[in-house]
Design a protein around this nucleic acid. Structure first.
Lengths: 343, 343
DNA sequence: CTGAAAGCGCTTACAG
DNA sequence: CTGAAAGCGCTTACAG
């Protein structure tokens, strides 16, 4: 027996292929392919034989070959506004934790709260034919929405929910959550409750609406109590806004910040300025971020279940990628008002 | 002319392929492939013709086909311990910003400071044949290092530097940075300087060594001043450690926390406990994270250039992926002691 | 510097 | 339920 050279043009990668498994199991490569992907229409005994052969040989499917033949990859695009907001980090962690065991990789894109960046990222990701998409919110550009629809790639939106037909989402009512927090402040006897926001993404505006609605019900709404700043959210900005609000509307007795980092900045500014919280003015935040429970005084806020959002979105997507209609197209994970010393 | 049906077995994707471009430009597909990848050995006029044809047809290479034929993908694996530490978020942002325009996608993996998780992630990523890797630090498992070496995938380590042959890195001297901060405290007249650390990853230990070395030089080192806690770093833990250190070593006059979140927690604990900072005890941190400049008093810390680290690492990797030896195999981006009110 | 041939390792679509 | 054929869209190696 001579040691034959590989024929001309042949490239040796040494990889164990479907064919090797097929030979070993005594079936055709297609049957191996089907058996390993858990497709129906394969006799149980064959499945067992194929799996045994695959295990024996240490076969691992080649994602690139699979992607080329099937016209879609094994990765899921996850587009979020920023990683500097711990909110999205928590969502991503759970998305990954759910997707990885199923053989999918999360490809994270950062939009910087910019629709056109989001659209650009989407274009790039779609070239790679992702198996699925996770997007934050519903404020994609029209072009971006068309790209997604045309691609046929299953997509789950997170953070907010929508009842729109054919749209999948996991989140909670931003508006309701803000209403609930505002009611808490009202119950504490506060009457001049300001709303202070930065970044001004759609969810921030929904929170503003929740706050506004509650005050209007009580006849307490006053446009002067609304402080909307388009700059990125930060502790420093929260401190500035706190100082400014107190200077310009001295009779304010509570401030509802749209995010905890602003509220944390306000609390440290209060220390610096000698403003008594909550005696003079109550301070509340949103999201219950790291450190909020450590503030002096500890911050009252809304705890959002972003880990759950990530996990549920990934599970829903897993179903959609296997062409299964989910039990519900919108999952509301709720929220929780956490009352601490600052109100 | 009849409208011919596609032959049996034919799948129509409607995609514009290399072949289409080749026909349009009147050259062979291989020449198109070479011209578009900027490979040498192609006549300039052909390159121009091919590029024009590609642009006219709106040709976009298929990453899956490319990956299958070339045996490596267009993505780069980036493995970091956590995204909850803003440090790594900044590194990742700049890695992505540098890699994307070159057509590479970053695939982020979170190791949770766990070598075996890192190894597992590496195995998964290597199956996808990444074009390159970015890893935090040098404490990979032996098996992980072997996997990388065997794969031949170019790899750049970040955060620390190493002069080891064949190892590529971008970072700074954690030890030196800690020494510099300790010297600052000594210059301020502090004598009983504690070091308080959590997480205890290799970089934390290097900082400890830097602190210890400076104190030993002055004959001021005392093992009782060393507080090493393996729990994850957080504001809450920083507050606890602060309280504990003051209770057990009342004569301490400065505490150097290995990370800003601990130090921030210490500063808020000080407010709660009525401990005067820096009058009674100075507090310093490391990394200059968000909010450190907003504390009361503002936190003295070491500003680390993690954005630069990410960008430089990505640039170095870009070269390595094109088989170019970098000018230097280790880039030290330095650091900066930022003195504020807490010391 | 350019190209014809072969192949990368899978899955789709068609039959049976 | 199973398979023989073809193909996904590129690039590698070999020639010239």
């Amino acid at each position: 027996m001579t040691h034959s050279l590989p024929p001309r043009g042949r490239r040796a990668t040494g990889r164990i292929t479907l064919n090797d498994v097929a030979h070993s199991a005594g079936v055709s490569p297609i049957t191996v392919s089907r058996a390993l992907r858990g497709e129906r229409r394969v006799a149980p005994e064959l499945i067992a034989r194929v799996q045994a052969a695959a295990r024996k040989l240490g076969y691992v499917p080649d994602p690139a070959a699979r992607a080329l033949a099937s016209q879609h990859g094994s990765h899921v695009g996850v587009l979020v506004p920023a990683l500097s907001n711990a909110l999205f980090v928590d969502v991503i962690e759970e998305v990954q934790r759910t997707l990885r065991p199923a053989g999918y990789q999360a490809l994270i894109g950062i939009t910087h709260y910019d629709k056109s960046e989001e659209e650009q990222l989407l274009r790039e990701q779609l070239l790679h034919r992702p198996a699925g998409l996770v997007l934050a919110g519903f404020d994609q550009s029209t072009a971006a929405r068309a790209l997604i629809a045309d691609s046929g790639v299953p997509c789950v939106h997170v953070m907010e929910t929508s009842e729109e037909e054919g749209v999948y989402s996991v989140g909670f009512s931003q508006r309701e959550a803000a209403s609930a927090l505002t009611r808490h402040l009202l119950e504490r006897g506060r009457r001049r409750i300001a709303f202070a926001a930065a970044q001004l993404d759609p969810r921030t505006l929904q929170r503003r609406d929740g706050w506004r609605g509650e005050l209007q019900k009580q006849g307490l709404h006053d446009p002067k109590l609304e402080w909307m700043n388009p700059a990125p959210s930060s502790m420093a900005l929260g401190g500035q806004m706190f100082e400014q609000i107190l200077a310009q509307t001295p009779k304010v007795d509570a401030i509802f910040f749209c995010n905890d980092d602003l509220a944390q900045g306000a609390l440290t500014a209060a220390l610096r300025l000698g403003v008594q919280v909550p005696a003079q003015v109550a301070v509340a935040g949103f999201n219950d971020l790291t450190g909020s429970d450590q503030m002096v005084p500890p911050l009252t806020t809304v705890r959002t279940r972003r880990g759950e959002i990530g996990a549920a979105a990934a599970r829903m997507l897993l179903g959609l990628m296997q062409r299964q209609a989910p039990a519900q197209s919108a999952i509301d994970v709720g929220f929780e008002v956490v009352v601490r010393g600052s109100t």
